[in-house]
């Protein structure tokens, strides 16, 4: 076990190193941040000063080495644009993205599970067919379009919900959360639903498939033959068994939601990490781009490691010996 863990950690470190090199070279290849950041009125002398101030006059490998040296001491550099530590900028915005992603996941389960269950139990009913057709839309409609439509309907036409932005926040554990206030929840509703749409469809389909499969299992037949009520068969025997794949997939989806909720965040002007990364890419704010991607890589590595460990704990057939 210890050998396995050690090897995984070593692999992770290598992946992060490779990632940092790729991002560094990638951003360098796109263009010159000074051309974008500098005032058009600036003369050549000012341009040279800015290039020097941002450390862009050094050859790329030297820039990379100095980045690496600082990164090993926990300093991922300062944003060119904001002049604040990149990591701090990202962490400031993390609560907003986290509550959005968790809100979306919550909605996905809340809406997806019952609908999926219904569609699985009564596959030939009109309702089930409507749900399944709807879930195809959920998969295929582009997020930004749905987001704009939600705004048009619920904010502009009906005036029920605020169109954009994050609501009032409350400070808990030093971080600002908006889901604890009514105003905050109102602001959260539409972006969370928009982000959840794909996931709702996913959960519906997984649940339905699971139910259809499980209903034919011998143990369900046996439970029925035993004379258990249909309610008990569904909620105890079937439901528990279909939850395993659903939870696995939703858990993995959570990671990608946190990392890539860019579109929803920019449509709803939600001040999260996704909006930060897209703004940073637009101005080639390299320290922020690098720090963000490193953090995301770290997050995925951690999730995967935890999943592997959990599997080995749950299923004795999966062994984690370093062979």
């Amino acid at each position: 076990m210890a050998v396995y863990l050690l090897r995984r950690l070593l692999q992770s470190a290598l992946v992060m190193l490779a990632m940092s090199i790729i991002v560094f070279i990638g951003v360098f290849a796109i263009g010159d941040p000074v051309e974008i950041l500098i005032s058009p009125e600036a003369d050549q002398i000012e341009r040279e000063r800015a290039i020097h101030a941002l450390g862009l006059d050094l050859p790329l490998w030297l820039q990379y080495l100095s980045f690496l040296k600082n990164a090993l001491q926990g300093d991922l550099g300062r944003s060119f644009v904001f002049n604040e530590p990149a990591l701090q900028l990202i962490l400031q915005r993390m609560p907003a993205t986290l509550e959005l992603a968790l809100g979306a996941t919550f909605l996905a389960l809340l809406i997806g599970l019952p609908l999926g269950l219904y569609a699985g139990l009564k596959p030939n009913s009109f309702g089930a067919k409507t749900i399944m057709a709807g879930s195809i839309l959920g998969f295929s409609l582009p997020t930004f379009w749905v987001g704009l439509m939600l705004i048009m309907v619920f904010a502009v036409q009906l005036g029920w919900l605020p169109s954009t932005g994050r609501g009032q926040t409350v400070e808990v554990l030093g971080l600002r959360w908006s889901f604890l206030t009514w105003d905050g929840l109102q602001h959260l509703a539409m972006p969370a639903l928009n982000l959840a749409l794909f996931k709702i469809s996913l959960v519906i389909r997984l649940t339905r498939a699971g139910v259809r499969e499980t209903m034919l299992m011998d143990y369900v037949k046996f439970a029925r033959a035993k004379g258990l009520s249909p309610r008990r068969v569904t909620y105890v025997h079937v439901f528990k068994n279909i939850l395993i794949p659903v939870v696995t997939v939703v858990g993995l989806e959570l990671g990608s939601t946190i990392a890539f909720s860019v579109v929803t965040e920019s449509v709803f002007a939600w001040p999260g990490m996704g909006k930060l990364i897209i703004d940073s890419i637009n101005v080639l704010d390299r320290p922020v781009i690098v720090a963000y991607l490193m953090m995301i890589v770290l997050m995925f590595i951690t999730i995967n490691l935890l999943v592997d460990l959990a599997y080995s704990a749950l299923d004795p057939r999966v062994r984690l010996e370093g062979k």
Binding site: I151, M152, S163, T164, S266, A269
Partner: peptide, 18 residues
């Protein structure tokens, strides 16, 4: 003074009265 970079979101915000 809010920063709303997305063009459509800005217009929608005005129409919605936010």
């Amino acid at each position: 003074y809010r920063i709303v970079v997305n063009d459509s979101a800005r217009t929608a915000g005005l129409l919605a009265g936010d």
